[in-house]
Nucleic acid binder design. Structure first.
Length: 272
DNA sequence: ACCACAACCTGGCCGC
DNA sequence: TGCGGCCAGGTTGTGG
């Protein structure tokens, strides 16, 4: 599932192949992948544009175009962007193909059809509400502690709220809570100052380490060249129900919080 | 402002 | 071999 480390990796690995190229056209194999504008207008506005840069905000990928417009892509749960030379044999579940002027193509593959792309003149409506970027300097322990003190919901639910912090998803929230020794059902405001600081450190560590491993290939995530990431091998609790805790040996548990599977160690992360 | 939940989607896996 | 049920979970919209 693409969270911040996966989207960051995709961005980094697309840049050398895509920035400076022109988009000769886009083929929609499934029109629902385009959120706005309509297909006809999209085609006329994007054809011939140079990609001048690729950025990331939270889990959004942002392609800057020569006209100043932005192509904003969200991969949701099962999307990937794969580079290839042969558009006559796209990967299975390809929903759109972005054709580049050097004969290369970006295949937007997405089995579950949750992913979307849109063409906008201005990104503020999309990313303006997002919380702070957890790997940037503005995300300080003091800021995290202050934000947490205002929220009564379970800390797990708060961490995956994109308006609270941008980019953290289900897997890395579980990993950060384990690293900080905090039970996922603890009310956010109940964290002590010391716990908030531990959590701040854990979030940064877990995300940076996963970027170093080029993301986690738990189910459908692949890098643009088709290779998997390696971060899943570093997971200590996520998707490991029934396995033994790497710290204390206790059997790891899974509970559902806000409809999301939450994995934790009942001993290292004591009940609220 | 905060909180909670349903809906959107479909493939892969497991047990029977 | 087939089939039903579970699991994966980011965002949006709705309502309290």
């Amino acid at each position: 599932m693409p969270e911040l480390p996966e989207v960051e990796t995709i961005k980094n690995e697309l840049v050398p192949h895509v920035v400076g190229r022109r988009i000769s056209g886009v083929t929609l194999s499934w029109e629902g992948i385009l959120k706005e504008p309509n297909a006809q207008e999209f085609d006329s506005r994007i054809a011939g544009q140079e990609v001048t840069g690729i950025g990331r905000r939270g889990k959004y990928l942002i392609f800057s175009l020569g006209s100043g417009e932005l192509l904003i892509v969200h991969l949701k749960m099962s999307g990937s962007l794969l580079l290839g030379w042969d558009s006559s044999s796209p990967p299975r579940f390809t929903r759109a193909v972005i054709h580049l002027d050097n004969g290369r193509h970006i295949f937007f593959r997405d089995p579950r059809k949750f992913g979307r792309m849109r063409l906008l003149k201005d990104s503020t409506s999309i990313i303006g509400r997002l919380g702070p970027e957890p790997l940037e300097a503005g995300f300080t322990p003091e800021l995290l502690a202050r934000l947490l003190s205002k929220r009564k919901a379970p800390i797990k639910a708060v961490l995956i709220d994109q308006n609270f912090i941008a980019g953290l998803g289900n897997m890395y929230a579980d990993e950060a809570l384990f690293a900080a020794g905090i039970h996922p059902l603890r009310p956010a405001a109940s964290l002590t100052r010391r716990e908030a600081w531990r959590l701040h450190r854990a979030i940064k560590q877990v995300l940076s380490s996963a970027i170093g491993d080029k993301g986690a290939s738990v189910t459908t995530y692949f890098r643009p060249g088709g290779e998997p990431g390696k971060a899943q091998f570093q997971f200590r609790v996520a998707h490991r129900r029934g396995e033994n805790c790497p710290v204390c040996g206790t059997s790891l548990e899974r509970i559902t919080i806000r409809g999301r599977g939450s994995y934790f160690c009942p001993r290292c992360q004591p009940e609220p």
